[in-house]
Simulated assay, not measured.
Amino acid sequence: MSFLTVHHVAIICSDYERSKHFYTQTLGLKVIAEAYRAERQSYKLDLALADGTQLELFSFPNPPSRPSRPEACGLRHLAFAVADVEQIKEDLEQKGVVVEPIRVDEYTGKKFTFFADPDGQPLEVYEVGIDEMAR
């Protein structure tokens, strides 16, 4: 078995328009495709990151809330690789996003911080070198 990369991460949101605005306007992700599936009363929005990884944003009528804090079993958070955590933090805060103070990973020495999407999904920005981003 040889896994090559992550193709996509799927996120279910409670307010489609609010989340669409957050991911496209606040975070600046590019829209690949958008579809409304009437039989499911659901929107599906495919978004692209620079490396080809995709986020799928779904809406469903009355989705249940996240069961508990990030330490619940399952996806803990989604981390984006960035070249400059401090700049991203500043950009997000200028757009009204609350961002935690920057921390340093005790094992790698890399800077990172967390913020949340409109539904409270924990999102991380993790600083990597330019050479790491090219991989």
Rank of each mutant, 00 (worst) to 15 (best):
S2M: 14
F3C: 01
T5R: 14
V6N: 12
V6Y: 06
V6A: 12
H7F: 01
H8R: 02
H8G: 01
V9I: 13
V9T: 13
C13K: 08
C13A: 04
S14Q: 15
S14I: 00
Y16A: 04
Y16D: 07
E17F: 05
S19F: 03
H21C: 02
H21I: 01
F22D: 00
Y23T: 00
T26W: 06
T26P: 02
L27G: 02
L27Y: 06
G28L: 00
G28S: 01
L29E: 06
K30L: 09
K30C: 04
I32H: 10
I32K: 13
A35T: 14
A38K: 15
R40G: 09
Q41W: 02
Y43K: 10
L45G: 08
L45K: 07
D46H: 12
A48K: 02
L49K: 04
D51Y: 08
Q54H: 05
L55R: 01
L55I: 07
E56I: 01
L57S: 05
S59W: 13
F60N: 07
P67S: 10
P67Q: 09
R69A: 14
E71M: 03
E71G: 08
E71W: 10
A72K: 14
G74W: 08
G74F: 05
G74C: 05
G74Q: 11
H77N: 08
L78R: 07
F80L: 05
F80V: 00
V82H: 12
V82K: 11
D84Y: 00
E86C: 03
Q87V: 04
K89P: 01
D91K: 12
L92D: 11
E93Q: 14
E93K: 09
V98G: 07
V99Q: 11
I102C: 07
V104S: 10
E106T: 07
E106R: 11
K110A: 14
K110Y: 09
K111D: 06
T113S: 15
F114D: 04
F114S: 03
A116G: 00
A116S: 12
D117V: 00
P118H: 08
P118Q: 07
G120T: 05
Q121I: 09
E124G: 06
V125W: 06
V125S: 11
Y126P: 02
Y126T: 02
E127F: 06
E127R: 04
E127S: 04
V128M: 12
G129R: 13
G129Y: 06
I130S: 14
D131C: 07
M133L: 14
R135G: 02
